[in-house]
Nucleic acid binder design. Structure first.
Lengths: 180, 180
DNA sequence: CACTATTAGTATCGAGTCGAAACTATTGCA
DNA sequence: TGCAATAGTTTCGACTCGATACTAATAGTG
């Protein structure tokens, strides 16, 4: 019980300190989070709705964030031909640079023993899993671990969307992900 | 490297999901964080400046947060006699209830094996330590682990501030904390 | 095929955060 | 005595947040 409070405190504080220094540029923590997500999500998972669900936010808020990200040149809009309502956003070169940049938290992690990192990663995944099942939101897992994924000679194939995947795409996160 | 990005992602996402549901009442995540801090800090560490440093924020922002927390009745102001500039805030009964309430993250942690929790706690403390030394901010540790602390028959004593401490106070966090 | 329900995204509102900078009152120091 | 440092507040503009009301496109049903 007392442990739980301290763990929550630590997780929140780490994010807060990470965000505080992240304010620096012309981006705020939310905009940065959107960029980070876009850098890891596949091409079927880059709409305002998807981002909103991933971040536990709303379409309205995310729509605003995209507006200023487009204006600042971190992201470009791509409208779908099939469904004229749908929009998919893509990182520009600048956007990509920001998404993969170092920050206080990753610097702190850099000189941390590998074994400890694996443990930490596993624990955090577990906690996140418990939280997600609590409010039954999607896991946003990686393609290659999905029940609809098929490994092929030249990458992968998604049985759900009936689309072939390039090798690097099989390591991206997907809105439709379902654990086996 | 890739691990580091995922760890950051997980930590940020946990906070975000935790915060998202925390919006519910008439409190936002920042106000809640202030309340949580106040619930764990000792009487020498409850000023706007202290909170600002703990949260990696600024005095200006925290001042605003306190304004609305006072207005909503979660916190009361106490001016110091010795230094007429200084203010210390205290949780009201309602404030205390909120600070120790359950939330999505603690619920997720509840049915998590004890041993794993200890490991997670230790890892997170380590990462936080690395981050704090990076931007040389204070550790905000617990009194009993401080180099100025002395255990007495009826609680403790702070050699730095020359003040006796009640037993429960030796487990609170302090702005002045220094590791041995 | 038409009509309605659902879905995707946007606009607007009010409260609040954020850093930055300017400001007031008090205390400390020389 | 006088100036510097400190504690806290206020204001500014950009932005987040949930809520709500909105438009346009697609899906489902009769």
């Amino acid at each position: 019980m007392k442990q739980d409070l301290e763990i929550r405190e630590l997780i929140n504080r780490l994010t807060r300190l990470d965000a505080a220094t992240a304010w620096g540029g012309d981006l705020n923590p939310t905009q940065r989070a959107v960029l980070d997500y876009l850098g890891r999500a596949n091409r079927f998972s880059r709409s305002p709705s998807h981002v909103a669900e991933y971040l536990g936010s709303t379409r309205g808020t995310v729509s605003q964030s995209f507006k200023s990200l487009v204006q600042k040149g971190y992201v470009t809009e791509r409208r779908s031909k099939l469904d004229k309502r749908a929009i998919s956003f893509e990182l520009t070169e600048t956007g990509n640079a920001v998404a993969s940049a170092q920050n206080p938290l990753t610097i702190a992690l850099a000189d941390y023993p590998e074994g400890e990192k694996d443990n930490l990663l596993a624990s955090l995944r577990g906690v996140l899993g418990a939280m997600l099942s609590q409010n039954k939101s999607r896991p946003f897992g990686i393609c290659s671990s999905c029940m609809h994924h098929e490994t092929t000679s030249n990458g992968g194939y998604c049985r759900l969307l009936s689309k072939p995947l390039l090798p690097f795409e099989t390591h991206q996160i997907c809105y439709e992900h379902e654990t086996t």
